[in-house]
Write a protein that binds this DNA or RNA. Sequence first.
DNA 1: ATTTATTTTTAGATATATCTAATTTTATTT
DNA 2: AAATAAAATTAGATATATCTAAAAATAAAT
Lengths: 220, 220
Amino acid sequence: MELTTAEENYLKAIYHLSEEGKKSVSTNDIATAIQTKPASVSDMLRKLGEKEVIQYRKYYGLQITELGKRLALQTIRKHRLWEVFLVDKLHFAWDEVHEVAEQLEHIQSPLLIERLDAYLNYPKFDPHGDPIPDEYGDVRSRPRIALNEMNIDQGGQIVAVKDSSAAFLRYLDKVGAYIGARIKVLDKVEFDGSVEILVDQKKTLFMSKDVASNILVLQS
Amino acid sequence: MELTTAEENYLKAIYHLSEEGKKSVSTNDIATAIQTKPASVSDMLRKLGEKEVIQYRKYYGLQITELGKRLALQTIRKHRLWEVFLVDKLHFAWDEVHEVAEQLEHIQSPLLIERLDAYLNYPKFDPHGDPIPDEYGDVRSRPRIALNEMNIDQGGQIVAVKDSSAAFLRYLDKVGAYIGARIKVLDKVEFDGSVEILVDQKKTLFMSKDVASNILVLQS
DNA sequence: ATTTATTTTTAGATATATCTAATTTTATTT
DNA sequence: AAATAAAATTAGATATATCTAAAAATAAAT
């Protein structure tokens, strides 16, 4: 089963929206996610339905099929592996990789991905801390918690960010709260939800609730 | 000027056929080279003519323009750099690379190609022995200069070291002056020949003359 | 339960890239 | 030079992917 680049992009968006715990994925949601118009989405949903990567009934909504999930995860796997390559090998910054990976993820060559995976040493997480599915679509996801929801004296490791906008990533980089940093919660201010944390056992950092709620931590 | 993937493929074929010393490139030749029908070629030639990458007069034939040559060479450069990557880094056999490189050559990202070039150590030939054009389409290599001989405000990219002892490489790695890093000379101290440089537009670095004179820079 | 608003879909256009079949132009032969 | 062959182009279709504007279906509000 072969998908076009456009179809892959739609399916990936549908997968992500489905995973976000929403009861159903709307045509409008997809249009927003993919920066297109609802009319185009309707058309594409019909096609994806015919290809049986989603179950689609007009006006009723859609559900991604097992086949669809498998294909979406393959694309996500490729995207994240390329991100690792760009950051680890080509010294791209976190916030520079997305656009390029969006293109690279559509390259068709199972051998290429197999070799790339090996070359990168079978990474389990991308530079944003998101898990990389294996070739069968399995993910080893660990339980993660938002930084602002941790208790005082609890420790852990920053593994991902919710908001991966360039501005936010630049900010994190600047204050030294990189993916992989070991942190510990020193204090929480009830009033505004801000937190004080210790980074790598040396630097203390104050963070607003807004910032902290966008940082995901693997508790230890 | 932006070309579509199809246009890039046609232009590349036209460039190759033109280089083969033939007096003129025929519609049929192109159709054969690109595995398509003459009717499709006629259509595309009109479009390429409008975009001024070729000079085209119906029934008379075509000639690739300077602009066309430049764009074709850029695509060829990308194709051959990816081939080097696939063979040198991912251990593809030389006869397995073509198909994948045909896809990779269309990825749009000047930064990616710049970094890839650096990562591969500025190869001059691909695995088939064909020369890799530089970013201007030239096959000749540009002059490199020792870092301590650059002028203030001049920028460039670290491309090699004279002294490649382990100790020196460790030092470079530690301060973040890796091969491929984009640098700019911020200041020079007359007294001892030391320099201050900006690395990747964020980190400033001081270097003694001894260190700087062992670093070779490709000026931009 | 009607009316109103929102969401979704369809109808009809546009743009790219391709094809087959028909036509036109150029080249070759007699 | 007229007839024939070859090459190149146009006309008209098809397929993908998108859009705007209109219509249809569902959801929300009075």
